[in-house]
Design a binder for these strands. Structure first.
Lengths: 325, 325
DNA sequence: AAATTTACCGCAACCGTTTGCGGAAATGTT
DNA sequence: AACATTTCCGCAAACGGTTGCGGTAAATTT
């Protein structure tokens, strides 16, 4: 069976297509009687307008694109959930594409976005993406692009990011406030700008006031191994730059049968899911993908409303106290 | 700036629109010389065909819909990642919609799918969804619907599910094999068919051979509370029907300072992420969202290829031994 | 050189909507 | 009763492509 069209409805009712169209949109030109006849038949036939035709005609797609390295990620999936929610509330659909952190797939995804004439794009660029020309092309076509999390270095684009410096600073000062004396700090890959930002803010705040050992881990496993290794020097606190690091650290602590927070304190930067998995819950500085999503969406709506104002937004970072400090 | 159209290209080159269209599609009617002129200009102008126009004309959308209660879920996001991957590989786009487990939003999402004339739908229905008429309407319109995970009770539809019975049976026999004597088994909401299936298979396998206490929890918090409550009766094993339950149980165990597996053994049904967070890692029966996604996609392609064969597929379930038993 | 075939391209209809404009019938005004 | 309004609706073009069919000029065959 085929989808009902205006033509079919008009045929049955002996009306013109335009009259049916107007009736369904409650146009004042159409009499109430006719409107009733039309809407009733439309309902009976389960009429749903063809979005493609509308988009073609109106040149307005009501479709957002979202490109992300991977959906399966603590941070991203809450970001996505958030954007999807808002999109629906505003009558937009969302086309979600994964780049697999591969610049080539990223290009292919952008192509898809352009072919579908998206109204706007949320993009988290792949780690090795150097050429952002394809993204800028969208801007030329008056399609707003909101970069999030991993953003390009150029200045004339909208970006929303978690507050890397602020969150690391907040974690560091919490450690100082709690009168801790010896910190093991685990960071991710040094090549990532997010790592460098958090690291510099963290060390700057600690400022040699207490003992600090900085380590870099590329995975949860590495974090676990490093923690086990450095636990022998008896730190009183472990700081984890990310959720992935945290999971490795917690495994090491459980393996060593250490009690949190009596034997050792733990603090992390996280979106909040992982820290709540443990008892006591881990104290963390929140970098909410959910909130960042809302922020990104607001930024998008502003751009669509015609604001050419370039925004570089960061979500606020707040300390959530668990029982781990 | 506007997107380039065939008309613009044809205007510049002094050709007709149809010639340009054919040239770009490498149609034999067009001379090599003309093809070259056209493709060169198209590249220079960054031409991307308007998907809406194509879909309107060809009545073929190359778009899949996917409706899920929430993206932010261990299981679903790996399922989604998997389906997205396959879709892209087969030149389909994917529109992902969250229902928030709300039947009303579900209806709205289905409407969106229909308006966008999706080529097929992957659907995990909301917990309280009773009326699946709107889903069947899609089938009437010759749009394949593949239900996954939470599937309706009716028979004439394609379903892919994790092997509920098999996984629960596997967990139960593992418990028996390990000579455990007293099991606390935590299940989810009884109204869910997934719960009932797992429960019946589990109890059937345990078969009163050892002591068994069955409890139902609607959330991680409830699971934690229930576990704490029943820990006093000294079970030697806790079985967790799902990841959510598992997180609650583990918190209770950590809170009680019990040692896994010496004081108490733990086994779960899971896709594997959460169990690996703890030390020792939790033994679990794997229900992979990733694999299920591949399965669902295959089923979709079969349906699109014209197969009216109704399939009820289940992904295999394998035991992954951690150190918790 | 005439007839036939081949190569290449354009015309026009169509997909399902929206919308400016014009027109007939009904109603209201003198 | 003649005119001016208002009410209600249809015509047709447009959005950006695809595609069957037909036509002309060149190439080939007789």
């Amino acid at each position: 069976m085929n989808n009902t069209t205006l033509k079919e409805i008009s045929g049955v009712l002996g009306l013109s297509i335009s009259t049916v169209s107007r009736a369904l949109k409650n146009h004042p030109d159409i009499s109430e009687k006719t409107k009733l006849r039309v809407t009733e038949l439309a309902n009976a036939l389960d009429y749903e307008p063809n979005a493609n035709a509308i988009q073609l005609r109106t040149n307005k797609s009501n479709l957002f694109g979202l490109i992300v390295p991977s959906i399966s990620n603590f941070f991203y999936h809450s970001f996505i959930a958030s954007v999807e929610e808002e999109s629906r509330r505003h009558n937009y659909s969302l086309m979600i594409l994964q780049s697999g952190d591969d610049p080539l797939i990223e290009i292919a995804n952008l192509k898809l976005c352009r072919q579908n004439r998206i109204s706007g794009l949320f993009a988290c660029i792949a780690t090795q993406t150097k050429n952002i020309e394809p993204f800028l092309k969208l801007k030329e076509l008056d399609t707003p692009v909101i970069f999030f999390d991993k953003v390009p270095d150029i200045s004339n684009c909208n970006k929303v990011c978690v507050a890397d410096e602020a969150s690391a600073t907040s974690a560091a000062s919490t450690i100082l406030n709690k009168k801790k004396k010896k910190v093991l700090a685990l960071f991710g890959n040094y090549n990532l700008s997010i790592t460098r930002k958090r690291l510099s803010a963290f060390t700057k705040t600690i400022d040699n006031k207490i003992k600090l050992s900085v380590q870099h881990a590329n995975s949860a496993e590495e974090a676990e191994a490093l923690t086990l290794e450095h636990l022998s020097s008896k730190p009183d606190t472990v700081f984890c730059m990310s959720d992935e690091i945290l999971t490795g650290v917690m495994k090491a602590i459980q393996r060593s049968s250490l009690k949190v927070p009596d034997d050792i304190a733990v603090i992390a930067i996280s979106n909040g899911f992982i820290p709540r998995l443990y008892f006591p819950e881990i104290t963390y500085v929140e970098t909410s993908g959910y909130k960042l999503g809302k922020l990104a969406f607001t930024c998008m709506m502003n751009s669509l409303a015609g604001s050419t104002f370039i925004q570089e937004l960061t979500s606020e970072s707040i300390l959530v106290e668990g029982g781990s400090m």
